[in-house]
Nucleic acid binder design. Structure first.
Lengths: 140, 140
DNA sequence: CTCCTTATTGCAGTTACTTGCAATAGAGAA
DNA sequence: TTCTCTATTGCAAGTAACTGCAATAAGGAG
């Protein structure tokens, strides 16, 4: 998964946000580390390039990118949050609590549930990255 | 929602756990406060009766009751965790991020999704209290 | 009732993440 | 290029929740 910084930068600037070297570095790190990344891993990665870059900045940037739908966040049962570049097609995950295996689930698969929520309760689910925890075939 | 301490105590003792006054107090507090309760609220409540009762004990007891399926926990988007007595029939929630409205969703409603997870991926979802965040009819 | 094993507690620190505030620095306007 | 406004950063303190360890006490055995 890669990201087009030009395009993202233009969009953010257009919305009145600023594209700082810190934010670029942090987004690059999420991209390069790949998959589900912890804030700590991102912090360590950017630290190597710019040692003065602060932890708080990493967390704020990551949350900012979440708000802007550029990355998605998942809070794991162990309390840690993992981040991932939001691709062009939103998806969800089945995550094995034992071995960590990770199945990508299309938005499609949740649509029936979300439809029923809307029809029966008038409720619009607004979560674009849900992780369902459980056990995979091997770990059961 | 009420709880039968006798029955729960017997089950826990049978499994080799101990039924301490602290645990009883904490479970009573979850019951009396009702609905979705924060650990902080439980702590303040039990504090009034036994001031020496420690915060760590509250968190450990709450997690213990979760493991034992006596209460359920939900981590909200704001980072706080709310607890609720697990009734006889497991259920999930649609929670409005704007007004906090809370719709109870039967296990039934998620079964088709969980079935597909099992059939297509061999994956067994093991979450008995999921909260889907979004917006209710009025807040959209 | 007393003894004994070990689950649980209280305490104090740690972790993961957030936040207030003054200083810094994007980026549009002149 | 310089000026100006204010979004963002660095720092340090704050919060919710977790944890290691020695002391305590539940509860089964005798």
């Amino acid at each position: 998964m890669s990201h087009n910084m030009e395009e993202i930068a233009a969009r953010l600037r257009g919305a009145g946000y600023r594209v700082t070297p810190q934010r670029q570095l942090i987004l690059d790190a999420v991209c390069e580390l790949g998959g589900h990344v912890t804030a700590e891993a991102v912090y360590e990665s950017v630290q190597e390039i710019v040692p003065s870059l602060n932890q708080g900045t990493v967390y704020r940037a990551l949350n900012f990118f979440c708000d802007e739908r550029i990355v998605t966040a998942t809070r794991q049962p162990d309390g840690r949050t993992v981040y991932e570049l939001a691709g062009q097609n939103p998806h969800h995950h089945f995550v094995c609590q034992v071995c960590g295996a990770d199945y990508e689930v299309s938005q499609q698969m949740l649509r029936p549930l979300f439809e029923r929520a809307r029809q029966e309760y008038g409720f619009a689910v607004e979560m674009d990255h849900i992780s369902f925890f459980g056990r995979c075939r091997e770990c059961r």
